[in-house]
Simulated scan of single mutants.
Amino acid sequence: MNAIYVEQKERKGQSHAIYLAKDYIDTDLLILFVDTLFEYPINRLLKTGGDGTLLVKEVADPRQYGVVVLEDGCITRLVEKPSAPVSNLAVIGAYYIRNHELFLDCLEKQVTAGTTNKGEFYLADCLQMMIDQGAELRADHVGVWLDCGSSDNLLEANRYLLKKSHYVGGQVDNSILRPPVYIADSAVVKNCVLGPNVSVASGVNVEESIISDSIISEDAILSQAHLRGSLIGKNARVQGAPVRLNIGDHSEIRY
């Protein structure tokens, strides 16, 4: 598959990122946010009518998300992270735009006019502009949606994926594994107790550690660590640690 990548060098929001790629949009458009995990038959979008479809999910606290207001199955209003809830239908970060010409026109107007919210160009404003110009945007519900935008949500997504599929590769010596766990082929685990719900990426080396409910990213090295509910970044170094730890790439922690 041939792909073209466009880099957004400044964090100016969702619409701005798509605007940078506008010259490559000449047909129906599928927009997927990278920090969302959901289950939905994508080909069903092709059977929906109107000018586009947004995938939604009912949530307990809509203040954290962009939400839609529906009338007779069509979206009449989009609100980004409302302080006063107007709907509990959160947009999960998946959009199918059939009328790409109108979308591009509204995108151009939004960016040119500088229509932002807290300094960012939100996609909700562009889509609302489409609706105001007569576009028919519909909503379709998903059954499973995990927002991976926070550490707790990312760990929840890890637990969900491990229930569906787990794997033990690499070198595992004198260790106890409590499933489900995922251990990449090039990982090394020695004298450890791992699991449940632990993902160990490629190139990781873990020794003399007890770890549960955690994600260990590529090429990290852990020794004598006791971790639970933790996120360890790429190339991180951890020697001894408290129960919960969240560190980024190339970090080093010693206790």
Rank of each mutant, 00 (worst) to 15 (best):
E252S: 13
A135Y: 03
E108Q: 10
L29W: 03
I42M: 15
G233C: 09
K190S: 10
E207S: 14
H141G: 04
I232G: 00
R178D: 11
A139L: 05
G203I: 06
V68S: 12
R98W: 06
L102M: 14
S202W: 03
P180N: 07
A21G: 12
L70G: 07
V189L: 12
A225P: 00
A201T: 03
V6I: 14
S202V: 04
P82F: 07
D219R: 11
S202F: 03
F103L: 06
L32M: 11
I216T: 00
L78S: 00
S202M: 05
I75P: 07
D35M: 06
R138V: 07
D72L: 10
P242K: 06
R138Q: 14
S230K: 02
P242L: 04
Q14W: 14
L222A: 01
C126F: 02
V69I: 15
I97Q: 03
W145A: 11
R178C: 09
R159T: 12
E101N: 06
F33S: 08
L29V: 03
I131N: 07
N235E: 09
N99K: 04
R254F: 06
Y182L: 12
S150N: 14
K81C: 08
C106N: 01
K12G: 05
F121H: 11
A225L: 00
S186A: 10
E10C: 01
Y182D: 13
S151E: 12
P41K: 13
H250V: 09
G73C: 07
K57G: 06
L29F: 04
A187K: 01
L155C: 08
N246Q: 06
W145P: 02
A17L: 11
Y182N: 12
E108S: 10
I215L: 11
D28N: 12
R237E: 12
G240P: 02
D219T: 05
E71S: 15
N99V: 05
L55R: 08
S212I: 03
D72K: 15
D105N: 09
E156L: 13
S212G: 05
I75K: 06
S150P: 01
D26I: 01
P82H: 08
D213G: 03
V168G: 04
D28Q: 12
E136A: 12
N153T: 14
K164M: 14
N158K: 10
I75G: 04
C192G: 04
L227A: 02
Y160W: 14
N174M: 06
G170A: 01
C74I: 12
I253F: 11
N88P: 09
Q8C: 08
E7P: 01
G93N: 09
I97S: 03
I247D: 01
R178W: 01
G169E: 02
L89D: 06
E7N: 10
I253P: 00
M130P: 05
L107Y: 00
L45D: 11
P85F: 11
F121R: 02
L162V: 11
K164N: 13
Y122L: 14
P62Y: 10
E39Y: 13
V204C: 11
S223K: 13
R44Q: 15
C148L: 14
E208I: 01
G240L: 02
N191V: 00
D72E: 15
L37V: 09
E207P: 00
Q239C: 10
L37T: 09
Y5W: 04
V204Q: 02
D140Y: 07
S150T: 15
A236S: 13
L46F: 15
L127G: 03
A21I: 02
